[in-house]
């Protein structure tokens, strides 16, 4: 690590102010950022911890029946407190990383980082969630813009995420053997407006919706509806753990299994 100052604001307003300092870096759970700092791959001059902002923590239902999760809410809290309202999302949170990660890592941190193999982006995009920041609300469909890239502006903080609760949903993943991130995972949500399928871990462009699968499942919500369907592997991640072709294949397998788990 290099030396840096730490600010620990207790309100969103103070956090925004602190992030106005030169080379300031927000930190939520720090599960990606701290290893990056330890490897000296980042050198912020100020680290602004979002962990002390109570207004960014907690799980509740709003008047529209949406599940609202504060940006600084840990995966463990979501796993416990969302279970009664949105079991598929709680299950996703319960299977992220290991207990240490789940007790430090947060939903806001995960969505702001937008790791192409992270779990939450699939949950947010698959649910059609709304990402709330200190300045605006962004639809998930507009929020994820590529690997480690989002619609967030410099200094903008994910303060809350609002999930419409689908009729049924399921998150199915296969683990990359070393990191235990998803090698590929599919979040399938069945809603009154149709079916949403979000895939993480597979694409060089990060999380994406598989629209052909959504259409097929909208017409016939059954694993068989996906028979013979496949994704183009051109933009799929290819690395030590699997070729693009293997990942493209897994997208279909994970989606089918998610559908089967719901149907």
């Amino acid at each position: 690590m290099y030396n840096f100052d730490v600010e620990r604001p207790s309100t969103i307003a103070d956090a925004v102010k602190a992030l106005g300092r030169e080379e300031a870096q927000p930190m939520s759970g720090g599960q990606t950022l701290i290893p990056t700092l330890k490897a000296r791959l980042a050198a912020p001059s100020v680290l602004v911890s979002l962990g002390g902002i109570d207004e960014m923590k907690g799980v509740c239902l709003d008047d529209a029946g949406r599940l609202c999760i504060g940006g600084a809410t840990t995966h463990a809290t979501v796993a416990a407190e969302a279970a009664a309202h949105y079991p598929a999302l709680a299950s996703l949170a319960a299977r992220i990383g290991d207990p240490a990660v789940r007790n430090r890592g947060t939903i806001g941190g995960s969505l702001a980082n937008n790791d192409p193999s992270a779990c939450y982006p699939a949950g947010a995009l698959g649910s059609g969630a709304t990402i709330v920041t200190n300045t605006r609300e962004i639809a998930a469909d507009d929020y994820f813009q590529g690997m480690f890239d989002t619609a967030l502006e410099e200094g903008e903080i994910v303060t809350e995420v609002k999930f419409p609760i689908p009729t049924a949903a399921h998150y199915e993943k296969i683990l990359q053997p070393a990191s235990r991130f998803p090698l590929v995972a599919a979040f399938v949500a069945r809603t009154a407006d149709g079916v949403r399928v979000a895939i993480t871990g597979a694409s060089n462009n990060g999380v994406f919706r598989w629209s052909e699968a959504e259409a097929a499942l909208g017409a016939n919500f059954a694993a068989d509806a996906l028979a013979g369907m496949s994704l183009d592997d051109t933009d799929m991640i290819s690395d030590l753990h699997g070729t693009g072709a293997y990942r493209a294949h897994l997208c279909a397998v994970m989606t089918k299994r998610a559908v089967a788990a719901i149907a």
């Binding site: 053997p177 070393a178 990191s179 690395d239 030590l240």
Partner: peptide, 11 residues
């Protein structure tokens, strides 16, 4: 080295 950490070297 491609497998230079536990992110890629599976124990």
């Amino acid at each position: 080295l491609l497998s230079a950490s536990y992110m890629d070297y599976a124990m």
